[in-house]
Design a protein around this nucleic acid. Sequence first.
DNA 1: GCCTGCTCCGATATCGATATCAAGACGGTC
DNA 2: GACCGTCTTGATATCGATATCGGAGCAGGC
Lengths: 327, 327
Amino acid sequence: MTVSRVLNGSAPVNEGTKARVYQAIKRLSYQPNPVARSLRQAKSNSIGIIVPNFYDPFFATCAHAISLVAKQHHYSVNVSTSDEDAGIEFTEANLMVLNHVEGLAVIPAAIGKSSFDRPEFHSTHIVTLDRPIRGQRFNSVLVENQQGAIEAVKHLIDHGHKRICCLGLSNKVYTIRARHEGYKKAMMRFNLIPDQYFGGVTEEATRVLIQKAMSGRKKPTAFFVSNNFVMRHALHAFSKLNIRIPDDIALIGFDDWEMADIFVPAITVVRQPSHELGRVAAELLFARLEHKEVSLSGQQIVMPVELVIRQSCGCNRRGPARAVPGN
Amino acid sequence: MTVSRVLNGSAPVNEGTKARVYQAIKRLSYQPNPVARSLRQAKSNSIGIIVPNFYDPFFATCAHAISLVAKQHHYSVNVSTSDEDAGIEFTEANLMVLNHVEGLAVIPAAIGKSSFDRPEFHSTHIVTLDRPIRGQRFNSVLVENQQGAIEAVKHLIDHGHKRICCLGLSNKVYTIRARHEGYKKAMMRFNLIPDQYFGGVTEEATRVLIQKAMSGRKKPTAFFVSNNFVMRHALHAFSKLNIRIPDDIALIGFDDWEMADIFVPAITVVRQPSHELGRVAAELLFARLEHKEVSLSGQQIVMPVELVIRQSCGCNRRGPARAVPGN
DNA sequence: GCCTGCTCCGATATCGATATCAAGACGGTC
DNA sequence: GACCGTCTTGATATCGATATCGGAGCAGGC
């Protein structure tokens, strides 16, 4: 008991005794058992992080940013992946809650029904990022998906493109849906006909989608690719299909990536503040944990995005070491 | 107690009672408390994974592969990052051990002194991957770093290159050191003078290194870049410095990456089996955990690498949609 | 001397599981 | 009926921490 009091400063202890305790701790190289502590106190001084996967650098960046904030608040973190499966997400989150995490920062899984309104989570603070979940109890930090898409499409329209095709991963994913909404809005506003494709899950699938889009009577002259993952597949596909960017097709993506600027041609993208997104979400979570501000409940924070104009959209044609034939 | 017996099957229970227990469990939506279980049994049915970071897709892939194997063995995982700092690594590993993880799969941090020989870890099974640690108690799964580098450099030499420069991150990192060893060996074997640079930590730094290398009287005609991270910086730098690949400089990297094959020019690399590396390491760990095979102790497994020849080394010049001037 | 108040420390109960021990119920054997 | 073995179940102690209570020791005031 006295040791506990010394280590936690939970009650005054005589200086001499304190010294003896520290001495004994050193002699025995004693370390308090966090499991016992967690059992007794029903808390673990940690938060849980669940992201769909680590492959996507966007998710990796978010997870890292959250961890940094947690470290600043002297919390440890428990990271896990859902593989976009709400079932796995539930299992992982439930395990975390049983392990008494103080809160959860989650990028919700796209496939399946979210379980965060289940009674298991009634007393857990939950903040989501990148994608929202319904519910008064939760906070979400999002980016301006729709607005970003509108800006990208407008940019293409400003350059004279009329047949712009939109390529996406899956309309089960919130961000993709929002971006496609933006695409559609922008097209409609200029009386253009939207032309959308979902399902770029593999490189193969993406190539088929592109071929389908290009085989119509009125071939598109530009593509808006609504996420990073599909963009990688699309670039492979364009390369294989001998479609030249931006000569045959202008191209804009959503979400920046390393080397997008030195790719040939450099890829124009809508950049999201991934690190900031994680930071803000984590800070929101800790605000809730530490000040118990219930007033924040249900609030959504939306962060701005930025159109980064490079070459793939047809602008800035003179790249450093680049010379595309016929141009 | 009876509930415990039913759930764990640790002793026979009357069928009727069993049914009543299950009924009660359902009615109360009871879930066993893993913290209490862990306290009593001093185990947690989980393994810890520590990697330097999630940014590097190589590390992300390894972590994912390990998780998959853990899932197959019905273990949960506890993932953490060291940021290449042995101090943080110790803190994280120690916390995991205090939380009674059954074993650790680690990519050891490069900076600082490893702590895994400390008494805190005397009863923990530890397997490292990508990088070894000294000690009879540990297993490591590595790749043929030296041999891979030798093959890459030989390939360049076979194409007539004599002044080949080697660009690395830090000689504190085991893999980098091993690859540079290979580079040096290959160069010496052909009576060529090694020319190595370390410190490509940022794009800026890498550019300076390249400029330094290129400013000598005898400019290199080829670069061997010993890791993925530096390769990204180097490509940026080459682009900024208007150095054309492979016309001005031939280029080979270590570790494949998404889109290396559609980069212009496609990058020739030594490919490592990252997923396999994680899988094998995890299987080794579980072999130790489940069969308690102490005979495996101290063993190292070395996995083969493969030279993937693309265009940046000067081979296969005709890329799909590519036309470099003067070629 | 007695009471009050304060500081400091240890005894005990508790968190929720499981290891261990013990005991009731029942059938069979002599 | 006494004894034994098997099957089943509950009682108790335990893991290592902390919440709570109580008590020892001492000073000060009447």
